[in-house]
Amino acid sequence: MTVPLIGAAMLLHNMDILRDWLFDKDRPLEIQDFIPPGIIAGDTSALLRQWQVALQGHHGPRGIHGPFFGLDITNPDTEIRTIIQARMYKALDIASALHAEWMVLHSPFTFWHSLNYTNYPLLRKTLFQAAADCLGPVLERAADAGVTLVLENIDDTSPADRSDLIAKINHPNLKLSVDTGHADLAHAKYGAPPVIDFLQHAGTNLAHVHLQDIDGHADRHWHPGHGRINWKPLMTALAKHPAQPPLLLEVRNNHNRIPKTAAILENLLTGN
Score class of each variant (00 low, 15 high):
residue 202 A to H: 06
residue 24 D to N: 11
residue 180 T to D: 09
residue 84 I to N: 04
residue 220 R to T: 12
residue 221 H to N: 11
residue 172 P to Q: 03
residue 17 I to F: 08
residue 73 I to V: 09
residue 108 P to A: 06
residue 43 D to N: 11
residue 20 D to Q: 07
residue 73 I to S: 02
residue 34 F to K: 05
residue 103 M to V: 03
residue 12 L to H: 11
residue 127 L to D: 14
residue 48 L to A: 03
residue 71 L to E: 14
residue 147 V to S: 06
residue 203 G to P: 01
residue 194 P to A: 13
residue 113 H to A: 08
residue 108 P to W: 04
residue 35 I to V: 15
residue 227 G to Q: 02
residue 171 H to W: 00
residue 55 L to S: 07
residue 162 R to G: 12
residue 43 D to T: 04
residue 208 H to L: 01
residue 114 S to T: 12
residue 127 L to F: 07
residue 145 A to S: 10
residue 167 A to W: 00
residue 135 L to R: 00
residue 172 P to W: 00
residue 148 T to M: 02
residue 115 L to E: 14
residue 154 I to S: 09
residue 261 T to R: 05
residue 18 L to I: 04
residue 216 G to Q: 05
residue 200 Q to V: 08
residue 65 H to V: 11
residue 13 H to R: 14
residue 122 L to S: 14
residue 221 H to C: 10
residue 189 K to Y: 08
residue 23 F to W: 09
residue 30 E to G: 11
residue 1 M to N: 12
residue 68 F to R: 04
residue 171 H to K: 06
residue 214 I to W: 04
residue 62 R to N: 07
residue 254 N to R: 13
residue 207 A to T: 07
residue 197 D to T: 15
residue 173 N to F: 08
residue 184 D to V: 03
residue 201 H to Q: 13
residue 258 I to M: 10
residue 238 L to E: 10
